[in-house]
Design a protein around this nucleic acid. Sequence first.
DNA 1: CTGTTAGCGCGTTCAC
DNA 2: GTGAACGCGCTAACAG
Lengths: 319, 319
Amino acid sequence: VVPPRRRVTTADVARAAGVSRATVSYVLNNTPNRSISDATRTLVHDAARELRHVPHGPARTLRLGHSNTVLALIPQFRLGYIFEHALDELTKSLAERGYELLVHTRTDSERSINELWGQIAPAVVVAIGRLSSTELAEIEQDFPVVSIAKLVPDTDIGSKQAEYLIGRGHRHLAYALPEDPFLMQFAAGRLDGFRAVCHRHGLAEPAVESIDFTLESVHSVVRRWRALPEPPTAVGVHNDELALVLMAGLASLGLRAGEDLAVLGVDNIPMAGIGLTTVAISPQLTAQSAIAAVLAELGEPAPKADSSGLLDVIVRNSA
Amino acid sequence: VVPPRRRVTTADVARAAGVSRATVSYVLNNTPNRSISDATRTLVHDAARELRHVPHGPARTLRLGHSNTVLALIPQFRLGYIFEHALDELTKSLAERGYELLVHTRTDSERSINELWGQIAPAVVVAIGRLSSTELAEIEQDFPVVSIAKLVPDTDIGSKQAEYLIGRGHRHLAYALPEDPFLMQFAAGRLDGFRAVCHRHGLAEPAVESIDFTLESVHSVVRRWRALPEPPTAVGVHNDELALVLMAGLASLGLRAGEDLAVLGVDNIPMAGIGLTTVAISPQLTAQSAIAAVLAELGEPAPKADSSGLLDVIVRNSA
DNA sequence: CTGTTAGCGCGTTCAC
DNA sequence: GTGAACGCGCTAACAG
């Protein structure tokens, strides 16, 4: 099916340089505790460059037992702003240390995933999102696994939201959850953090509602909030997209976000630029904790993670 | 660094089943033109299952010259709704045919990318977005490359936008471009299509402006449009995100999208649910053309692509 | 100190 | 149904 291509091997390089294959390997890998004359080194390097030698990964992997590859398992490609940013950062950090990040989305068939890790023999598997514990156990038999169920500290996010709103003088709060099941796995933590801060400040339980991407859902939610004996004056929303929907809904009701109801999002997506106050999650810092975990597993020295400044409220005019 | 793990090899299976390694290979791969008794087959399969044998990809790849892997090279993980959806679809289609899709984002270092394809020896490389022609040539030396610079037919999108708006009776059109350079590589095609249809209908050149994610940019753009001798009554926008920003900007000026100015987006992202009329691009069909190209390169029979219904106007109330 | 020989890792496949 | 060689890079053991 696939036409075989003629590869340049270390044997070709050895022949061209007039040395043995072993020498080529030592030179190309800069193997420690091996003294090889500079003359020979140059010879080998020149030959390798000349012939455009690219070491064959599978052969090396076969010998070593693992590749210099990190496999990230993700549930789907549409992960949202922060996750996608974090993957880009992880890619960069690993590349700097000589590893390649490969990303694979999991299909339903377990056969597929089984074959996959056997296929590339990654140095480390990074599991993002939830992975069933049996699957996890199975992968762990063969490779080290770093599980990153929660890339972002969801409770901290919820706390930050509540603290900001309370700091602005609001005493009656509400919270808006997503309906998407994928997002709900993060939403619970955010709501917990939000609630905890409310309690700590002696406020009543926040009025929790779910919204989706329709104006109607916003209308009915707002109606319910306004019908409360103590209508909320501010609402923490699970993320910016939903917050923007809420803002649009308010506008369509003739209400103004930030005046009639304070709206606070999470993520600081580009569209928040239109005036949404939001809890920004630093993509760089977010990635850092994940990167640190992966590097630790690889036995690479990791820059110490500094998580201060991870969350930051960007004040615009919706809250 | 990484602790070696004891693997189960075909030799183990052969020993357990009391047959030779060759037989194990033939049975496990169901090699054609090989007659092996059912009794032996059962023996081998049972032993393999018992020992939980997972074939070692690198060894097989070493022998075969390529893995059953397809490598997708993308410029970054934040690709937008359609691209990400298409990757998910491609993953599924390939999985059904026994291939694994691995995605890698390209960092600046070319060293890295060189090592990568050597690393996993993919059956096919799918390049998404632009790849410099020298890079392309280099990869092509070693692996078949499918280049998907334009996943979506941008001119068709622009045409569809113009046709819809003209069909609704608009005679003075405008177009809103993004400022993001990554998006601009698609924007030109959309604008071309839009323009072409305007010409064909004998309309004046559309008034083109760029907007970003701020209300201010929308305000100044709208001001300029309204100052025109013949102010546009409808605007095609490069994508939904920008269209939503435009809608928010109109609202903040006390104007109503769909009444004071018709707004038509592209993509049909979830947030469009709040009332944005938009050209939906079918993620499934989009993926289909890419999938067909990849399968063709793999020599797999591809389902014939049916591109009708790729673009579809979802009418809400902004246009 | 400099460089070589030889065998390994694991699945595939030709020749008997 | 089997023996043996092969694909390619790594590295322990060894020779000059």
